[in-house]
């Protein structure tokens, strides 16, 4: 297995992400739609099979883990609110982009060849 380690986020990027989390958290949640990712967990016999098969889940997992590590450099005592803010920020940035079909599967971008 190839083992790769990504370099840590730069200070500037950590600052930018924290600022974005603050911006999102300051919205009026009473009246707006807030996209979120939820993890499906089966507490009965046998876990569910994967739902997303396109790697989107792995991208989110990596970004969440990276976000937690970055946040820990500023505040070691993280809590549930921090997970909520991190996932909310991930969803705000990636909810739409990770749903876009693959380039080759977007029929309107390609000329159909004659059979």
């Amino acid at each position: 297995m190839i083992r790769l380690a990504l370099p840590p986020l730069s200070e500037a990027e950590v600052e930018a992400r924290l600022a974005d989390m603050d911006r999102l958290g300051s919205r009026d949640y009473k009246e707006i739609g807030v996209p979120m990712f939820l993890v499906a967990e089966d507490l009965t016999e046998g876990g569910p099979a994967p739902v997303a098969r396109d790697g989107a889940g792995r991208i989110l997992a990596l970004l969440l883990a990276e976000g937690v590590e970055a946040l820990r450099t500023r505040r070691p005592d993280l809590g549930a609110e921090d997970i909520a803010r991190l996932i909310e920020a991930l969803a705000d940035r990636h909810f739409l982009s990770l749903a876009v079909p693959a380039f080759s599967r977007q029929a309107d971008l390609h000329t159909r060849e004659a059979a």
Partner: peptide, 23 residues
């Protein structure tokens, strides 16, 4: 909690919701 979330996400067990209250 983080471990279960990272494991669940990486396995692709993701549901997409948009939360509203008053509209």
């Amino acid at each position: 909690t983080l471990a279960t979330l990272v494991q669940g996400l990486s396995a692709g067990r993701v549901l997409r919701v948009v939360n509203f209250h008053a509209t």
